[in-house]
């Protein structure tokens, strides 16, 4: 189920602009890794290269290698669609499909790919995914209601359920709690702790307390200035990053003396 990610010398470009430069990082299976850093430092961009979602933006391309348990995501003949079935993603704003019920939202990854499942199988997938996302008890009586009728925090957990329904190896989360209130944030953070028993979780966050709470390892990204590429400054155990950082920039950032 869970796979490790090894990135070697990755550069990400938007057209001619180099957004991220020379990132090498090893992410363990069954762990939570947090990316922190100032806005515009390329952490979201880098996250999106881990399932080739950056290719949705015209002109975006990469140099380097991203290995998923040794398989290069950017090797010749690799289908980005296949990559994304192995590496799922949860976005900043909850985005359930407005035309679908809660059940169909969970099944979206399965149904939209045209797979046919029996009724009992789909019920099983729906229940296990919603239980996995800590949402089952709240929505089990209204699975046929539209997903957009849920609260923001419930919608975000619905999106997580939707992501784990396709049984990925890795789940990427791009600031999953920045649009949520503290209670919903807590629910999602608890969920992340449970998810790491089965999945490799990579999370981008602006909230350093959150990174400290949920992650095993933390990567700090930074940019030298506007128009310069983002770089990975330091990557270590979360306790080391927050208590005993090696780099001056990291220390300044985590202690709030940045800029």
């Amino acid at each position: 189920m869970s796979k490790r990610i090894d990135v070697k010398d990755l550069n990400v470009y938007y057209g001619n602009f180099r957004a991220v430069e020379g990132v090498s990082i090893n992410i363990e299976a069954r762990s939570v890794t947090a990316f922190i850093g100032p806005s515009g430092c390329g952490k979201s961009t880098f996250l999106r290269t881990l399932n080739r979602m950056h290719e949705v933006i015209p002109g975006a391309h990469v140099e380097g290698h991203v290995l998923l348990d040794g398989d290069d995501l950017y090797g010749p003949g690799v289908d980005p669609v296949a990559v994304r079935t192995h590496v799922g993603m949860v976005f900043q704003r909850p985005n359930p499909f407005p035309t679908m019920s809660i059940r169909d939202n969970v099944l979206a990854g399965v149904k939209l790919n045209g797979k046919k499942l029996s009724r009992s199988d789909t019920d099983g997938v729906v229940e296990s995914s919603l239980r996995g996302a800590n949402l089952w008890n709240e929505v089990k009586d209204r699975l046929d209601k539209p997903g957009s009728g849920l609260s923001g925090g419930q919608q975000q957990r619905l999106c997580i359920a939707r992501a784990i329904a396709v049984k990925p190896d890795v789940i990427l989360m791009d600031e999953p709690c920045s649009a949520l209130d503290p209670i919903s944030t807590l629910a999602v953070e608890d969920l992340i702790n449970e998810l790491k028993e089965q999945y490799t979780v990579v999370i981008v966050t602006h909230n350093m307390q959150q990174a400290a709470r949920v992650s095993d390892k933390t990567a700090f990204f930074n940019i030298a200035g506007t128009g310069k590429p983002g770089k990975l400054i330091e990557y270590a155990d979360t306790t080391a990053i927050f208590n005993n950082p090696k780099e001056k920039a990291t220390e300044d950032y985590v202690s709030g003396r940045f800029g």
Partner: peptide
């Protein structure tokens, strides 16, 4: 919204 397209792509939908 583009987010809906991205959500579908991220699920491995063609």
């Amino acid at each position: 919204p583009n987010e809906l397209r991205e959500a579908a792509y991220a699920l491995g939908v063609r």
